[in-house]
Each structure stands twice: as structure tokens, then as C-alpha cells.
């Protein structure tokens, strides 16, 4: 028996709006430790990992591990019926293949789960989520890849289009900067990755969920873009960099 009750449907709505374009169908794996979802996009170039902890729910009962295959667009459409302040309850009986009052059809999705090594990163940047979203959107109008370079001074975004190039440099702020404007950098060594902007722009749909975004980079490894949600936990997006031919 699974019974989840969330007092603020708005948060779940924002979570779904931020992932439904990247991934169409995915398994919600619910256990006593929380609900997690890990899925790759159709091109298998990007991946997302979502964790919703039990203490973010008003009521969380999960008698045994259950995996619910869902079409995220249907789930997002269904949740649109709830206003942000509504309470949403998700029930799933072990045997049945539907959830809650909306009788949403569950699907059987064979998804391969990937193991993400908790490796260290050469550079970790924390910056305002809205600034990162605006930079990705603006650069997306000029080129389709962005070179993100981190040095101890700051983080630089460079893109080259047919008619022009754009270079945005965000300087690291002093420790006294207000949290919502702070740009902090932990760095072992300078690192630079070239990434497809359309995926980064898709990741920034999660901007409403968090004030800050954490960008973790290691040369030649997937970039990790993480939005920490104050009560629920996190959404992490992974994107493989482009490598020179």
C-alpha cells in the first residue's frame, strides 16, 4: 500500500513541469526512504535524478517498495486540475495498476537505472538559478553549444553562432554577498566543458524550484546541474559534454 499526501500540490506541479519535456515516461520508485525517479532523455545524452524525501510530505506511507511507471505529461496534465495550495494524495494499491482518484493508467516501463558515482568534482559553482537560466536562454539565441569555463575568478559562458559570438563572465562574489546574488566557487583546478545549450535550457525549467543552482564539473565528465528544493530534496540533471572530434 502506498499513500502519499502533499499539502502543496504546487511544488509537485513545478517538479513535473521541469522534467516533462526532458523525459516522457519514467518510473517513480517509492520506498520507505522516499520517492525517487531517475531517467535518461530519449537521446540518452542527458539524465535526471529526482528525490522526494518522506519528511517533505504531510503523510507518507509506503508499506513495501513500489515502482509506478508513469507518462509524465499525463501526470502533469492531471496535476493541473489541482491549484498550488491544494492537497494532493497519491494512493496505489499493490495489486492495481492505477493511482489515486484520477484513475491514471500506470505503464510498465523497463528503464535501466544508472549508478552515479559520488565522485568529487574539479569545480563546483553555486550561483543564482535565475541568472543561470537567463544566461542559457540568452546564449541559446546565438549558438547551440556553450563552453562553460571555471577559474578561481569566476565562471565564463562562451558561445559562437553564425553571425556573432557571446561571452558572459560571472565574477565570484565576495563572501558577504547576499545569498540570492552570491556566486561561489570551489575549485581543484580550472575546468572547461562544451555542452549542448538545448539541454541546459530544458534543465532551467526547474528554476522556480530553487533560488540557487549548483553546477559541478570535471573535465570530460557529465556536468551536474542541481536544484535543491528546501523540503523535498533535489532534482539533479546530468549532461554529457561534447568532445572534440
Amino acid at each position: 500500500m502506498l499513500e502519499l499526501r502533499l499539502t502543496r500540490a504546487g511544488l509537485l506541479k513545478k517538479v513535473l513541469e521541469s522534467i516533462r519535456d526532458l523525459v516522457t515516461d519514467a518510473n517513480f520508485d517509492c520506498a520507505a526512504t522516499g520517492c525517487s525517479l531517475q531517467a535518461m532523455d530519449s537521446s540518452r545524452v542527458a539524465m535526471l535524478s529526482l528525490l522526494l524525501r518522506p519528511d517533505g510530505f504531510e503523510h507518507y506511507r509506503c508499506d513495501r517498495n513500489i515502482s509506478m511507471g508513469m507518462n509524465l505529461a499525463n501526470m502533469a496534465r492531471m496535476l493541473r486540475c489541482a491549484s498550488d495550495d491544494d492537497t494532493v494524495t497519491i494512493n496505489a494499491d499493490d495489486a492495481q495498476d492505477k493511482i489515486s482518484d484520477y484513475e491514471m493508467k500506470l505503464m510498465h516501463i523497463t528503464s535501466e537505472n544508472l549508478e552515479i558515482p559520488e565522485a568529487g568534482y574539479e569545480a563546483i559553482v553555486k550561483m543564482p538559478a535565475s541568472l543561470f537560466a537567463r544566461i542559457c536562454k540568452d546564449l541559446g539565441t546565438i549558438g547551440d553549444t556553450v563552453m562553460i569555463s571555471v577559474t578561481k575568478e569566476g565562471i565564463q559562458f562562451f558561445t559562437r553562432g553564425d553571425i556573432r559570438t557571446a561571452n558572459i563572465f560571472c565574477r565570484k562574489t565576495t563572501p558577504v554577498a547576499k545569498e540570492k546574488e552570491a556566486i561561489s566557487i570551489e575549485m581543484e583546478k580550472p575546468v572547461s566543458l562544451t555542452l549542448a545549450l538545448r539541454y541546459l535550457i530544458s534543465f532551467t525549467k526547474a528554476t522556480p524550484l530553487a533560488k540557487q543552482v549548483t553546477i559541478s564539473m570535471s573535465y570530460g565528465r557529465p556536468i551536474v546541474v542541481e536544484y535543491k528544493m528546501e523540503i523535498m530534496d533535489h532534482i539533479r540533471f546530468y549532461l554529457v559534454p561534447k568532445v572534440e572530434e
Binding site: E112, T194, K242
Partner: peptide
């Protein structure tokens, strides 16, 4: 524009 590898090149399936 560089080569785009798959994410499964980096994270092995469990």
C-alpha cells in the same frame, strides 16, 4: 561542433 557521447558511457547500469 564536437562529438556527443551517450551518458551510459559514463555511468554503468545497475
Amino acid at each position: 561542433q564536437g562529438v556527443q557521447l551517450s551518458i551510459t558511457e559514463f555511468y554503468r547500469t545497475t
